[in-house]
Design a protein around this nucleic acid. Structure first.
Length: 312
DNA sequence: CTCCAGGGGGGCG
DNA sequence: CGCCCCCATGGA
């Protein structure tokens, strides 16, 4: 692990949020595994972002009910364009300007959803990762336990990522596509323990080296998703993770062994069921919001026992 | 020892 | 298309 790069305070952003907005459960998801890229307390979140060539660290908290304040730290000259780019990234990552009231009205009519809705009121999808970063994470989630996913993620970040220090915290920062395009398959396999995923990760890097991953608010999301699925290693599950997280499609729901059982229990009253049966029930209950509905159930289940707890 | 995990590719009929 | 097999590996 290299010495941390010290970041200097360069900006303060004040971002309007659309009500209902739940700061805590939007920025911190109890189900998310440890990456070292972020840290959360009861009322504050710290997170790193790659903004163009810059390494940035952001400290976020609510200034008042309708305003999220972000203190920005960076490792170089901070231009107006960087401010705009980070503002767009934060707004998109956390869906700050989205109106989820239609989903709430719909979900309130479904009895098994009332408790998650009450506990997580105002929570929305979150994806501080850009398209490239979430693609890497979803690749590591394939057919692996969370412990093994965490191990692979740790290897990649420690070998190709960065370490930064800002506001008294030390966090890891993601690598860019360009920073891993030169790494060969054998290295990913043997040094980073990626297994068969070593065959695919290079394709991801090549794709995003030529398709700017910061352009998450793509002009044509359907076209982006179609193009994305031509990458070897991206199947229905991985594509749904991208659609649901980075593209913020509230209907996209990636069913895996883990959430399939959780949703089967909640909505069908059985320990497990075929994926298409679970999906059909989600569509019957939450047309257009299958993914967001699933998120409420999943995060509620992990609320009492978070994978990564809040710090003091 | 076996089994399986927050899947996906490729071959075959 | 559906079905089958293979992929890799650490933890239970």
């Amino acid at each position: 692990m290299p010495d941390p790069r010290i970041l200097a305070h360069v900006d303060t952003l004040r971002l309007a949020v659309k009500q209902p907005f739940n700061f805590r459960y939007t920025l911190w998801k109890p189900s998310h595994f440890a990456t070292g890229l972020e840290q959360h307390s009861a009322d504050t979140s710290w997170r790193t972002f790659r903004v163009g060539e810059l390494l940035t660290g952001v400290v976020m908290a609510m200034e008042d009910a309708d305003t999220l304040r972000a203190e920005v730290y960076a490792d170089g000259a901070w231009q107006e364009a960087d401010r705009d780019r980070l503002t767009a990234r934060l707004t998109h990552s956390y869906g700050l300007d989205e109106d989820i009231s239609a989903f709430v009205a719909q979900a309130e009519q479904v009895p098994p959803m009332r408790e998650p809705l009450a506990a997580l009121a105002g929570m929305r999808q979150s994806c501080p990762e850009n398209l490239f970063e979430i693609a890497i994470i979803s690749l590591l989630l394939q057919n692996a336990t969370v412990a093994r996913t965490t191990q692979m993620m740790t290897n990649l970040l420690d070998h190709y990522g960065r370490v930064v220090e800002f506001d008294g915290v030390t966090l890891k920062a993601f690598f860019t596509p360009e920073e891993i395009v030169g790494v060969d398959e054998a290295t990913f396999r043997e040094r980073d323990r990626l297994g068969y995923r070593a065959k695919y990760i290079g394709r991801f890097a090549e794709f995003f080296a030529t398709h700017d991953p910061d352009v998450a608010d793509h002009a044509d999301k359907a076209e982006l998703m179609r193009e994305f699925q031509t990458i070897k290693g991206v199947g229905p599950y991985t594509a749904a993770i991208i659609a649901s997280h980075a593209v913020r499609d509230p209907s996209a729901l990636g069913l895996d062994v883990w959430n399939r059982k959780l949703l089967a229990k909640r909505f069908l009253g059985v320990d497990d069921a075929e994926a298409d049966v679970v999906m059909a029930e989600m569509t019957r209950l939450f047309p257009g919001y299958e993914g967001l509905a699933g998120l409420y159930v999943i995060e509620d289940a992990y609320r009492a026992q978070a994978v990564v707890e809040l710090i003091e």
